[in-house]
């Protein structure tokens, strides 16, 4: 599961500074320009080919649009659910009363790193049935950890003196959480959300094996039909989608981050 590395990148110790530096023109505009160039080049290349009937069955505007929308749908729903579930859970686990169970949760989380997403989703499907919602459950299970962990880590690393000072000024614990802790933990939490998003885009590619379509359908068709143009189109589309989503999440995080952090 890619989440381990991504989570490491996102929660990052010393390396996060190296990786999350930026703000130059290149980091704002480099990615959209790169994506436009790659998508454009692929379009021109595929357009210049004589496609046979098998290729045309997959490589048409309808199919491509449908696969893309299916992919986005799976990604959006699973990410929304995982945010709604994992952030409150992370906040709860960071409260003093939860302290005894934290090591256990982190231990399970660590073992969870070794669980292959493909196997996990298959198990969920076997227990329930083929369908959209079982697929979503699988995706949520796969992307839960980074958000949960980053929420806990983010809250953990909030300057204790800031919390103490706020309590000292007469804020209630809830006010401290909402006005001090969450804003200060925001950059780390958003990094976790971004990671979860990437995992979901990536894992949704497996949707085609569980009858849920998505861009994995194009890629897999390319492989099984042995048609390179189809395979390349699928790979480019799904990669571009992942990079775009990552870019947008990063940009959004930068825009929303509290000033001064």
């Amino acid at each position: 599961m890619a989440d381990t590395a991504l989570a490491t990148r996102a929660t990052g110790g010393p390396d996060s500074a190296v990786l999350r530096r930026g703000g130059s023109g290149l980091s704002w505009f480099g990615m959209p320009v790169l994506l436009a160039v790659i998508l454009g080049a692929t379009y021109l290349w595929v357009g210049s080919l004589e496609l046979d009937t098998i290729e045309r069955r997959t490589l048409n505007a309808d199919q491509l649009t449908r696969s893309t929308l299916e992919h986005l749908h799976m990604t959006a729903v699973s990410t929304a659910i995982v945010i709604v579930l994992a952030i409150p859970l992370g906040v709860l686990l960071s409260r003093p009363f939860a302290r005894p169970v934290v090591p256990a949760v982190l231990g399970v989380a660590n073992i969870g790193q070794g669980v292959p997403s493909f196997g996990l989703i298959t198990i969920v499907i076997l227990w329930t049935s083929l369908g959209f919602w079982p697929m979503i459950i699988g995706l949520v299970a796969c992307s839960m950890l980074p958000i949960l962990r980053n929420t806990m880590v983010g809250l953990e690393q909030v300057d204790r003196t800031a919390v103490k000072a706020s309590r000292g000024m007469g804020m209630s614990p809830l006010q401290v959480l909402l006005r001090v802790e969450l804003p200060l933990a925001f950059p780390v939490m958003i990094a976790g959300i971004r990671t979860a998003l990437i995992i979901n885009v990536g894992t949704a590619t497996l949707g085609t094996f569980f009858g849920q379509g998505g861009l994995g359908f194009i890629v897999y068709n390319g492989i099984t039909l042995n048609r390179t143009p189809v395979l390349i189109t699928g790979v480019v589309l799904v990669s571009a989608l992942a990079l775009l989503v990552d870019y947008l999440a990063g940009a959004l995080g930068r825009l929303l981050a509290p000033r001064g952090l």
Partner: peptide, 12 residues
Amino acid sequence: FLTLPSLALFAI
């Protein structure tokens, strides 16, 4: 590379 979906990276 880590951002790319794994299936895509295998397929390419």
